[in-house]
Design a protein around this nucleic acid. Structure first.
Length: 559
RNA sequence: AGGGGUAUAGCCAAACGGUAAGGCAACGGCCUCUGACGCCGUCAUCUCUUGGUUCGAAUCCAGGUACCCCUGCCA
């Protein structure tokens, strides 16, 4: 466990309480959980919460956690997603060991159990089409009516179901239904569909099957087969729980798992639904599922977020049963906390403006040692070059300073971080009045500290880069994808809340020379600006592209 | 409207009949060669609401109110 996670409070929650009691009472000798994604899309930060809960609980209570693909619908599932999900879970730092499972591994057993139900008179083959089934189901306030096929004989049901499996019937022509209660107030109990016919290849079992079990008929039984003790899912499955238990009660399952539900993660300034995420990709609003602004794990990862930070975030937000919206600022804080600790510092000028040190000899060069981390000498130092012409950030100069501004102004002085104190002596402008370059003088005696020769303390410290030594890079400044905290909020089209400035590409940034050796896996703090990381996809030899992971906190500009 | 849930600070969240943890944010102050980091302090007489039980209630009881989920051959 890393320091940032230790710093996160481990608060009690209802799941821990339940597990504690189950262990104490001897109901279970150990716990087994599972993360059960359907491989029909890419994982997002909401899934990370579930992953951390399931794997985290298993870790904390000395149990195990399975990775299980809930692959019961081949019409939507693909191998690509299976691979991506496995990689994401690993990236987050979790290990399922021997326990990689697929619901489809149990298709034969599930089929046998369906036959068992038919023989018990508890399931029947339905000939009504989807629309008719819907009409027969009734409404929230009115009971449904029983299907005319509900009373078929066991023999006929067995025959028909066998022929469904054999592929004799086209998609949609028949389904297998449980015979429960068409008048049940819980609609999930009104003779739910158990199997449907789908003539499509399955990513894991190929074309062995023509019928596939529904989620409800697969999940609980699969939990039982895997001997899951605590089957943890999100709140919307709560109304399925009676069905989950009905199958466990009516089938000779080998174990008795129990379902518990928690509130899914909602994050401000983003959208999380698969449909909307997909739309952002398809409409070209983002560059892909791994666009650094996306809440997908592939996106977050490309952006440069660390798995430690994501885990700390999941720990910090807790687990409850009430619908909640987590402020994305908390995620950003977790990233800062982690990176502040681990990121080597460097200097980079994003919006360069030239500063000529007139009293510094032309052609002369000096090398200064700069610490890689102010609080961690063990992270070493690097040398940075100083020369007559420098780049500084245009944000750090104001011709007419606003109140409280203590960076560079004409006639003002400022400390060049790890360098000299300089005084700005003048501004050169073009005919339009745009600033071409700044001129200044340096104090040769001011290398150490921030005090001037006459003992005054310089208020401002700015970053800079030597012009002749600098390397040029593209830097992408990412911001929140939406400008509204809740773009998902009812009614209105979420796309109207898109933040037009969610990415700003700066193509002529000047970085200190040491960054020529930057590695993709290293996150850097560009001092006074934020945390950055080489884009793993668009960086080319000699033409670095940096992504801004997150800014530094900035109480000054906030005021 | 039938069923199932949930309400504790700006946002999360603990508490299990014994006198409202913690985190994030915010606000003061200190420190600082990053307006970063760090450090110190402040931040619910009160738990959606109205009654009741009790020596004692966020916790128990009764009635309200608000919000979320459920009418896929999706998961």
């Amino acid at each position: 466990m890393t320091s940032i996670e230790q710093a996160a409070p481990v608060t009690n929650n209802f799941l821990r309480t339940i597990i504690d009691e189950d262990l104490k009472s001897g109901k279970h000798a150990g716990i087994v959980t599972r993360f059960p994604p359907e491989p029909n899309g890419y994982l997002h930060i909401g899934h990370a919460k579930s992953i951390c809960i399931n794997f985290g609980l298993a870790r904390d209570f000395g149990g195990r956690c399975h990775l299980r693909f809930d692959d019961t619908n081949p019409a939507k599932e693909e191998q690509e997603y299976i691979d991506s999900i496995k990689e994401n879970v690993r990236w987050l730092g979790f290990d399922w060991g021997e326990h990689l499972h697929y619901a489809s591994d149990n298709f034969e057993q599930l089929y046998c159990w369906a036959v068992y139900l038919i023989k018990q008179g508890k399931a029947y083959v339905e000939d009504l089409n989807a629309e008719q089934i819907r009409a027969y189901r009734g409404t929230l306030t009115e009971a449904g009516t029983e299907s005319p096929y509900r009373t078929r004989s066991v023999e006929e049901n067995l025959d028909l179901f066998g022929r469904m499996r054999a592929g004799e019937f086209p998609d949609g022509s028949r389904v297998l239904r449980a015979k429960i209660d068409m008048a049940a107030p819980n609609i999930n109990l009104r003779d739910p569909v158990l199997y449907r016919i789908i003539h499509a290849p399955h990513p894991h079992v190929g074309d062995a099957w023509k019928i596939y079990p529904m989620y409800d008929f697969a999940h609980g039984q699969t939990d039982a087969i895997e001997e899951i003790t605590h089957s943890i899912c999100t709140l919307e499955f709560e109304s399925h729980k009676p069905l989950y238990e009905w199958f466990l009660d009516n089938l000779p399952v080998p174990a008795r798992p129990r379902q518990y539900e928690f509130a899914r993660l909602n994050l401000t300034y983003t959208v999380m639904s698969k449909r909307k995420l997909q739309e952002l990709v398809q409409l070209g609003i983002v560059s892909g599922w791994d666009d650094p602004r996306m809440p997908t794990l592939v996106g977050i990862r490309r952006r440069g977020y660390t798995p430690d930070a994501v885990r700390a975030f999941c720990e910090m937000i807790g687990v409850g049963r009430s619908d909640s919206w987590i402020d994305v600022a908390i995620l950003e804080e977790c990233v800062r906390a982690d990176l502040n600790d681990s990121a080597p510092r460097a200097m980079a000028v994003l919006r360069p403006i030239k500063l000529v040190i007139d009293n510094y000899p032309a052609g002369q060069t000096e090398e200064f040692q700069a610490s890689n981390h102010p609080q961690k000498p063990e992270m070493g130092s690097r040398s940075i070059n100083f020369s007559r012409e420098l780049w500084i950030d245009s944000d750090d100069f104001m011709e007419v300073p606003s109140k409280g501004f203590h960076r560079l102004t004409v006639g003002g002085e400022v400390k060049l971080r790890c360098g000299y104190i300089i005084t700005c002596t003048g501004v050169v402008k073009d005919s339009e009045g745009a600033i071409l370059e700044l001129h200044g003088d340096y104090d040769p005696a001011s290398r150490e500290g921030i005090h001037t020769a006459d003992g005054r303390k310089v208020k401002g410290v700015i970053h800079w880069v030597s012009a002749v030594h600098a390397i040029t890079a593209e830097v992408r400044l990412f911001d929140r994808l939406f400008s509204d905290p809740n773009p998902d909020r009812g009614g209105a089209d979420y796309k109207q809340f898109l933040n037009p400035n969610s990415v700003e590409t700066l193509s002529d940034c000047k970085l200190e020379a040491s960054l020529a050796g930057a590695e993709t896996e290293t996150r850097y703090q560009f001092e006074r600006q934020g945390y950055f990381r080489l884009d793993p996809k668009d960086t080319r030899p000699g033409t670095p592209v940096f992504n801004r992971i997150v800014t530094l906190r900035d109480v000054w500009t906030k005021k």
